[in-house]
Design a protein around this nucleic acid. Structure first.
Length: 430
RNA sequence: GCGGCCGUAGCUCAGCGGUAGAGUCCUGGAUUGUGAUUCCAGUUGUCGCGGGUUCGAACCCCGUCGGUCGCCCCA
């Protein structure tokens, strides 16, 4: 029986914890990122692909892995009350895109390269750059063996950093080996940790037999110490995996993309194999991963599809945005139309529409008010020009054009020109 | 799941036992048809909520809710 204590005051409606609004003042950064990322992806021949935000829960359990943090305690899972289906808000993008690809046999005509922008959901404690609803720019390559595409997506990402003007990210790469090598290595690891059991914390002990490779990523001092003497996967790598990893490094070197090999990169999902990589920044004190991904050659098969090698990454957009400068003030408006008096409304509307027909961005003042107050709005809008229409202009068929900002968007004090309505478009372009 | 810090005007914050404040924003004015700059005037608050201590609480204590930053983990 649900208790509804009468003493409890009504709670103001507010956003769900960890889920943020993007208000107009900050959306310019989002659009800037989305446009830049999309442009770069297209430059490399990647095509857009989208999948639903909600999927059947088993998709994530089977792909990400039962003993991962995501599946164990972070998923927004619920039952559809209408038909009893178990559903989950996607905690990542790869599983859904792979599922969609299998379902539509996307790779039938050969390998494909895709990108996707979308929202993810994980029930974690929110903090800086970590939210319950967050966004990723996601790139996937289906049907390529690599290591050429492995290098390609890293080269592409390096370009994206340049285009965004973010210099301080470091590429770290690692190899997780093939399926068989991982089993051998896993056993070696377990032996090593069992021999040093006293140094492990509870978390590490819990994972020892379920997911020992994650212990390599531990931040606990005593565990870090034990990790220093842990067996290295590189030593048990077979020839093919070795060649793959060497090939990747050669290609990155040839392309002039700097990187470091970091054997501790293990990634949070179980489906990764061979190539794993992260782009990390030190800008916020502790190292922060802004982009992470890797190869998942077995996932298609594991989800019931045909064997299809694949690689991809997810980039945390909120984290990238934290690294972008704040301003981006320009509204992109060419003109703001100020109007008052008999017939001015009609003249203003006609002029606005004809300017828009000419491809210009024009805001028309709404809500009335004095010329002074309208001019304040014109200034605040960031428009390059104010177009003023009053009784004089209506009867003369002219428009007063006053420059407000220069090409850089800086405020200027300019002379007002009186010109005929038909000449306004040309004047704004000059 | 664990820990730190913070809730006062739309926003950023000061005040820390004795009448609720500043900046900014907004509105109006400075020759009633002209922005940004300057000057003048004005509006804005259950000081998160509930209890306690006190003659008196925004201020001290307890609880609670909310936010935020760490840990863990991750993008």
């Amino acid at each position: 029986m649900e208790k509804t204590p009468a003493t409890k005051p009504p709670v103001a409606l507010q956003a769900v914890k960890g889920m943020n609004d993007v208000l107009p003042a900050e959306s310019a950064k989002w659009e800037y990122f989305e446009q830049t990322a999309t442009r770069v992806a297209r430059q490399y021949g990647y095509r857009n692909m989208r999948a639903p935000i909600v999927e059947h829960t088993p998709l994530f359990v089977r792909s990400i892995g039962e003993v991962t943090d995501i599946v164990e305690k972070e998923m927004y899972s619920f039952e559809d009350k209408l038909n009893g289906e178990k559903l989950t808000l996607r905690p990542e993008l790869t599983a859904g895109l792979v599922r969609a690809s299998i379902e539509s046999n996307l790779v039938y005509n050969g390998p494909v390269r895709v990108y996707c922008l979308g929202q993810m959901f994980r029930h974690e404690r929110p903090q800086k750059g970590r939210y319950r609803q967050f966004s990723q720019f996601d790139v996937e390559c289906f049907g390529f063996e690599g290591p050429d595409v492995d290098a390609e997506i890293m080269i592409m990402t390096a370009r994206l950093w340049r285009e965004l003007g973010i210099p301080d990210v470091r590429l770290e790469i690692n190899t997780l080996g093939g399926v068989k090598e991982r089993i051998v290595y896993r056993n070696e690891l377990i032996r090593h940790y069992e021999a040093n059991l006293e140094a492990l914390d509870d978390e590490a002990k819990r994972r020892l037999h379920t997911n020992p490779m994650r212990i390599l990523d531990s931040k606990v001092a005593s565990v870090i110490e034990v990790n220093k003497t842990a067996p290295n996967l590189l030593d048990s790598l077979e020839r093919d995996s070795r060649a793959h990893f060497d090939g990747l490094q050669q290609l990155l070197t040839d392309a002039g993309v700097p990187f470091v090999v970091n054997p501790r990169i293990v990634r949070g999902m179980d489906y990764y194999n061979r190539t794993a990589f992260e782009f990390v920044t030190e800008r916020f004190g502790a190292p922060l991963t802004v982009c992470g991904g890797g190869r998942y050659d077995g996932l298609f098969e594991q989800l019931g599809g045909k064997p299809t090698p694949a690689i991809g990454f997810g980039m945390g957009i909120e984290r990238v945005l934290m690294m972008l400068p704040d301003e981006q003030k320009s509204s992109g408006l060419d003109a703001y139309i100020v109007h008052a008096g008999v017939g001015a409304q009609k003249t203003a509307s006609t002029l606005s529409e004809s300017l828009r027909n000419a491809g210009l961005a024009v805001a028309q003042h709404a809500g009335g008010g004095s010329f002074k107050s309208q001019m304040k709005k014109a200034d605040a809008s960031g428009a390059r020009f104010a177009l003023i229409i009053g009784d004089n202009e209506v009867s003369a068929g002219t428009v007063a054009v006053k420059p407000l900002r220069d090409a850089n968007g800086s405020p200027i004090q300019g002379e007002q020109a009186i010109i005929t309505s038909s000449a306004v478009a040309a004047h704004l372009r000059s």
